[in-house]
Simulated assay, not measured.
Amino acid sequence: MELGLTSFPTVSAAAVLDLYDVLSCHQVLTQRNCCQLNFRRQDLMGVEKRVPLAFEKQLWALGKSASSIENIGFVVGTQINPNAQGVLSHLLSVAEDLREAVYLYKKYIVLMNQCEKIDVIEYEWGLRILYLTDYDYEYTQISTERSLSAMVTWARYLTQDKFTLLKASFKYNKVSYFTEYISIFGAKLKFNQKETFLDIPNSVADLKIKTASAYIKEILVKRIEHKIKVLFIDASIKEKVTLIISQKLHCDACSSDIVAQRLNMSRQTLHRKLSKEDSSFKLILSDVRKEKVMGYLLDKSQSVESIGGLLGFKDSSSFYRAFKSWFNTTPKAFRLALQAQTADELVEQHLW
Score class of each variant (00 low, 15 high):
182 I>K: 09
182 I>A: 15
183 S>C: 14
183 S>F: 10
183 S>M: 12
183 S>W: 08
184 I>R: 01
184 I>Y: 04
184 I>V: 03
185 F>E: 04
186 G>L: 04
186 G>S: 07
186 G>T: 05
186 G>M: 07
186 G>C: 03
187 A>R: 14
187 A>E: 14
188 K>C: 06
188 K>S: 09
190 K>Q: 10
190 K>T: 12
190 K>P: 08
190 K>F: 15
191 F>W: 03
191 F>K: 00
192 N>F: 14
192 N>C: 13
192 N>E: 11
192 N>H: 02
192 N>M: 11
192 N>G: 10
193 Q>M: 10
194 K>Q: 12
194 K>T: 13
194 K>G: 10
195 E>L: 14
195 E>N: 14
196 T>K: 06
196 T>C: 08
196 T>G: 06
196 T>S: 09
196 T>L: 06
197 F>G: 07
197 F>E: 02
198 L>M: 11
198 L>V: 12
199 D>G: 09
200 I>K: 05
201 P>I: 00
202 N>S: 03
202 N>V: 03
203 S>D: 01
203 S>E: 04
204 V>P: 01
204 V>G: 02
205 A>K: 03
205 A>Q: 02
205 A>M: 05
205 A>W: 02
206 D>L: 05
206 D>Q: 09
207 L>Y: 02
207 L>S: 09
208 K>W: 01
208 K>N: 12
208 K>V: 00
210 K>G: 13
210 K>V: 09
210 K>C: 10
211 T>N: 13
211 T>K: 07
211 T>Q: 13
211 T>H: 13
211 T>D: 15
212 A>I: 01
213 S>I: 01
213 S>Y: 06
213 S>Q: 05
214 A>Q: 07
214 A>H: 12
214 A>C: 07
215 Y>E: 00
215 Y>H: 04
215 Y>N: 00
216 I>F: 14
216 I>S: 07
216 I>G: 02
217 K>L: 00
217 K>M: 01
218 E>Y: 09
218 E>H: 10
219 I>F: 00
219 I>M: 05
219 I>W: 04
219 I>S: 00
221 V>C: 04
221 V>T: 05
221 V>D: 00
221 V>K: 12
221 V>I: 04
221 V>Y: 05
222 K>F: 02
222 K>R: 05
222 K>Y: 00
223 R>A: 07
224 I>R: 10
224 I>A: 09
225 E>Y: 06
227 K>N: 09
227 K>S: 04
228 I>T: 04
228 I>W: 06
228 I>V: 03
228 I>E: 03
228 I>Q: 07
228 I>Y: 06
230 V>A: 11
231 L>E: 10
231 L>I: 10
232 F>T: 12
232 F>P: 07
233 I>M: 14
234 D>E: 14
234 D>L: 15
234 D>V: 12
234 D>Y: 09
235 A>R: 00
235 A>L: 08
235 A>T: 08
235 A>F: 11
236 S>G: 11
236 S>R: 11
237 I>V: 15
237 I>S: 15
237 I>Q: 15
237 I>T: 15
238 K>F: 11
238 K>V: 10
238 K>S: 15
239 E>R: 08
239 E>L: 12
239 E>T: 11
240 K>T: 08
240 K>D: 05
240 K>R: 08
240 K>E: 03
241 V>G: 07
242 T>I: 11
242 T>Y: 08
242 T>S: 13
243 L>I: 12
244 I>M: 11
245 I>L: 03
245 I>R: 00
246 S>V: 02
246 S>I: 02
